[in-house]
Design a protein around this nucleic acid. Structure first.
Length: 277
DNA sequence: CGTAGACCCTGCGCGC
DNA sequence: TGCGCGCAGGGTCTAC
């Protein structure tokens, strides 16, 4: 469900969390991508939310408590079907609500995830980037150091199709199936093209296309295909701006040729045979 | 070492 | 209407 734009939209929508204090933690089902460490989460009671961050598709909720020697961070990954919402405490419990944080204001932060590919854990904030979940991650695409030049340099050590390359978090983070697909359309690059056969000019175009599509999606509140919503339950609108993703058989918005679907590494890829070479 | 494929899990929409 | 199948926005582990 969520790629970088959706997690970023979620992060921004949860601004009202800042200053809140955790009063109680309920773990209803520990079976997620990794078993939930119930004790570690309950150890967060009494902590106050200081700020909200993001790395790749991971949301980071930074916490402080007076008697802690160092701050901790609650890390949430939504997997394919996860949702994190801030709700009034009297809202009815919904299916698959695995973890619920009761807050001092009476509101609740609820983590719901039907498919249970998501993840939630607490860690010390210091050195978080050397945690096993983060240490291997590649470039942040919306950062200063991201460019066609770096992409090209990383690609020198790699082979295989560019779509697979873009979806490898060791290369660049935050791009999933939708935005990797859309960025390639915008850059006019065929998804099966080998990374060894992409010119410097096209790497530049691709880096620009990645940043453009991510920024546009954030602006539109993310992509809601089925069930994405931000922390306040609002849907995104970027799905109407998708050019090729999910549009097999439709005419290409640019040239009118029929959009095709293929499978790469077990994932659907959509592209225009006219515009992408 | 890097890459391709299977796998984790539930729900939904489609065709019969 | 009911059922089986294929598919879904992610990440990790294994076998080459």
């Amino acid at each position: 469900m969520p790629e970088l734009p959706e997690v970023e939209v979620l992060r921004r929508s949860l601004a009202p969390l800042v200053g809140e204090r955790i009063e109680r933690v309920e773990v209803h089902d520990r079976r997620l991508r990794e078993p939930v460490d119930e004790d570690a989460l309950r150890g967060l009671v009494g902590a106050r939310v200081e700020s909200l961050g993001r790395r790749a598709k991971y949301l980071r909720i930074h916490l402080r408590r007076d008697d802690w020697e160092e701050p901790r961070t609650l890390v949430v990954h939504l997997g394919m079907s996860g949702r994190l919402t801030l709700e009034p405490g009297d809202a009815p419990e919904e299916p698959h609500e695995h973890v619920v944080f009761r807050l001092a204001s009476g509101r609740e932060l609820r983590f719901r995830d039907p498919r249970r590919f998501g993840l939630i854990f607490a860690a010390r904030r210091a050195g978080l980037d050397t945690d096993a979940h983060f240490v291997h991650l590649g470039l942040e695409p919306l950062s200063e150091e991201f460019s066609g030049e770096v992409l090209e340099r990383v690609a020198e050590r790699r082979r295989g199709p560019v779509k697979t390359f873009l979806m490898d978090a060791a290369v660049v983070v935050g791009l999933g199936n939708i935005y990797a697909t859309e960025a390639l359309f915008r850059a006019g690059i065929h998804p099966t093209r080998s990374v060894a056969r992409i010119s410097r000019r096209r790497w530049d175009r691709l880096a620009d296309a990645i940043q453009e599509v991510l920024r546009a999606a954030i602006r539109e509140g993310g992509t809601t295909l089925n069930d994405f919503s931000d922390g306040e339950g609002r849907s995104g609108y970027f799905q109407v701006s998708l050019s090729v993703y999910g549009r097999e058989g439709d005419p290409c918005p640019r040239c009118g040729r029929t959009i095709r679907r293929i499978v790469q590494s077990n994932r659907s890829t959509f592209y225009c045979p006219g515009c992408q070479r």
